[in-house]
Amino acid sequence: MIHPIIKAMSDNPVRLVVSPPPHWRSGRTIQGMMRAHLLALVPAAIMAVAIYGVQAAAVIGMAGTAAVAAEVVCLRLQHRDVNVDNFSAFYAGVLFAFLLPATAPWWLAAIGGVVTIALGRTVFGGFGCNPVCAPLVAWAVCRFSWPDAMDIDLNLAHFMANSPVDQLKYFGVQSLSQFEYMDLLTGHQIGGLGSSQVLALAAGGVYLIASRWTRLFIPVSFLAGVAGAAALFWFIDPTAYADPIFHLLAGSTVFGAFFLATDTASSPVGRLPQTVFGLLAGTMVIVIRVYGVYPDGVPFAIMVASLLSPLLDRLRPKFFGVR
């Protein structure tokens, strides 16, 4: 038997709480962070329901529930504390749902939610250890496994609007005259059920930055990367390439900038690394949209940039006093 160590003078009636310094802390917690992020997604979710109907809410609910359930099972299997009350699993599930077409069948949303947690996070060590954004892993798995069910243009063909990025890919820049930028901004374009609500997502993103839960560097440099790279192509030939404003408003550019690229675990830390990361990811979006086979380049662009994070982390200033 191990005898407890009785510290000197510890036999007193007032039991003090001992903790390491600092004794003041900012009071910010992961739970608060995730709650703020979910709040930032609420406008986009409302817009999704307004445009696509209740089925959008059903997809969000299914993916979120499946993610939480998967997290509970995974944590249990690892004999870890079940801390789903920090909302991180639910948030990841909702992010995945935002990338789906609103007509996605229930099993697709459920499988995606489970894959988000199991393959996106748990196999790498859980929340905070994923090398690429977890919802994007699930998106990629589903995109390759069930391409028909994931195809936005195909599944939402009965809607009046078209998918701007698909139109650009398959019918060229001339077909883009059908889109009014105001409609794209207010979400009257087809795309992922939440990821195409540009204005609502931007409002949520600005809220996160204003409340300092997210830092400016990644979103701003991501948008700058998209706009810059698009502007470059556009200057070369405006008749063959779409203009930068279209690229900013079409597809899931804004969603990627504020919610996917800023995923804490898979993005680098520090001012310069985060800025370079954003610029790289933003540029990749345009490169994929121009040369790639995928209409909306955002998910793959962010995944590729995430893989560069460990390298970008080395772009740090010299430590204090090191010459």
């Binding site: 060590g125 804490t264 993005s267 520090g270 985060q274 204090f320």
Partner: peptide
């Protein structure tokens, strides 16, 4: 576990990690 948010690095006056 660390979630890699980078807040400590951004706030550090000694620029350490």
């Amino acid at each position: 576990a660390c979630i890699n948010c980078g807040e400590c690095v951004l706030q550090c006056p000694a620029r350490v990690q």
